[in-house]
């Protein structure tokens, strides 16, 4: 959070000056008027400057950065964070060496961190936001691996006629499998079981 006081001939001018100094937009800040200001008589006698206090709260991206910095440093990991903000989403990519520890088996550590950062940050801000964590391209590689797996297993289902049940996956990973096979006319996919053990089933379309 950053907070400054500024003055100007009118309240509007004082706010403008503060926004310029903070590099912020009007809708991002909260304004408190400390003094209305008075032009005085012919702008000469008894004129008083308007004074305002302008507060720029931490953005969701700031919260994501400071939370992850603390956590990573407590884990003994040195890494760079790349954060992009897009309507309702924050994409955060962690760059560095030896980050396998942050990924874990099949991404379980990364998913755990992502879940915790979502809880922690959404506790601090007004409008819900979804945070997606990645470690240096891991998620894209995993997505490609899942698509290959889906294609391979669908061929097996077609040749044997038996359905195949995959291992438990997160909703995001299950969606990748469903999407990869949705245009295959001979196959249909669905999920069964309860979270967090929900599994995709690949079956022959009858």
């Amino acid at each position: 959070m950053r907070e400054i006081e500024s003055s100007g001939r009118t309240v509007e001018e004082a706010i403008e000056a503060a926004l310029k100094e903070l590099g912020a937009k009007r809708e991002e800040v909260e304004v408190q008027i400390l003094e209305e200001g008075n032009r005085g008589f012919l702008g000469l006698l008894g004129s008083r400057l308007a004074r305002v206090r302008v507060v720029l709260p931490d953005s969701p991206a700031d919260h994501v950065r400071s939370f992850l910095r603390e956590i990573l440093s407590a884990m003994g990991v040195s890494a760079e964070l790349e954060i992009r903000h897009r309507e309702g989403y924050i994409f955060c990519t962690i760059h560095g060496r030896d980050l396998g520890i942050l990924i874990g088996r099949r991404g379980e550590t990364l998913d755990a961190l992502q879940y915790l950062v979502n809880l922690a940050v959404n506790k601090l801000i007004r409008d819900r936001i979804k945070i997606v964590l990645d470690v240096e391209g891991y998620r894209r590689k995993r997505e490609q691996a899942l698509i290959r797996l889906a294609k391979r297993l669908s061929e097996k289902v077609k040749s044997t006629g038996n359905r195949v049940i995959l291992e438990p996956m997160t909703p995001h990973e299950r969606r990748i499998i469903h999407t990869a096979l949705q245009n295959d006319q001979q196959i249909y996919t669905f999920s069964e079981g309860e979270e967090p053990y929900r599994k995709v089933v690949i079956s022959l379309r009858r």
Binding site: I71, M75, G104, E108, T109, A112, Y115, L116
Partner: peptide, 14 residues
């Protein structure tokens, strides 16, 4: 126990 599980997973990694 989903949150506890996530905390344990991160602790395990560290």
């Amino acid at each position: 126990g989903r949150i506890a599980k996530a905390i344990r997973t991160v602790a395990k990694a560290a």
